[in-house]
Design a protein around this nucleic acid. Sequence first.
DNA 1: AACCAGGACACAA
DNA 2: TTGTGTCATGGT
Length: 339
Amino acid sequence: MSASCQHLFAVSDYDLAATLSSGQAFRWRECFPLPSTGRGTEGEGWSYPAHNIAKTRQPHLPLPKGEGRGEGEGSVILPATPTPTPWEGIVSGHWVQLRHAPNGIEARCAVAQTDWQWLADYLQTDVRLDEVLNSFPNDEPLTRAVTACRGLRLLRQPPWECLASFILSSTKQIVQIQQIVGLVCERFGDSVRVPSSHGPVFSFPDAERLAECSEAELRACKMGFRARYLKGSAEMIARGEVDLERLRSMSCEEARAALLTLPGVGRKIADCVLLFAYGFQEAFPVDVWVMRALRQLYFPRRKVAPRRLLKFTATYFGPNAGYAQQYLFHYMRVHERRR
DNA sequence: AACCAGGACACAA
DNA sequence: TTGTGTCATGGT
């Protein structure tokens, strides 16, 4: 196998825009083409918008067969943008650019790779989305969410970056989390190899590095009261009191219990890490948006105690509840903006 | 200009 | 067990 800077992942039914902007990872940016006036200055003619919440619908390729949950007529294949906009991010120290291609997803790295499995794992390109979606309960809210967000996937992220990011997420909007995480990487991360004439990019700093930061240094990244939590968790992990790699061999409940010993990690953040980093697909993080979805889509005009709603989520959505959760979250946030 | 954001935690009652 | 105040900061 020869080394190359580019690779094609043969996968269908994958919506990059929805997946990378749906609040599970915080370092992806959509690259909008510059007006092409004059020569590109930096970044090879791509610029970063200040904020983007995926209003663009990337074309999802149709399913090969079996389609599942037929929603009346054949799904609309939008021509959308003739050339799908690429996305840029950093995956365990690699600068990565992704874009839709005719036969799947095309990836580009700054450094030639011989083995792309690490990226396949991250993107979860081997997951059969139709099987996941068919395991959902056949109800109206999920049918609407799946119809609107088809191609939305779950990533499989490195545990520490995922954990630290979600410690920083509490009562923050996604655009702010992106900003805070960006500052943390810029200030404390290591420089990452990028294509020539591309702006500087930094890795997510490991727990040891953040543990040796002062709380004031962390607060300077605009994270406020979360600084103490992040430092405390980084210290416990640096000291080996919690071994994030060892959680992989645990049951979901054992891993959750371990995460809950970390400062700043409660049920919701623990479930985010269980789902987005360890792949426990029964984990069902409930934030304000998902709570809103449960109340107004499943129990409209009824006062149901939060405790009871949690009990509901634990049993109702099945073995891939975490995927259902992500569809409800993204659907509420993007397609049901009202409050 | 209020209100809210992918919450956790200490402390009531 | 369930309810309230507090913690920072910036978007909408």
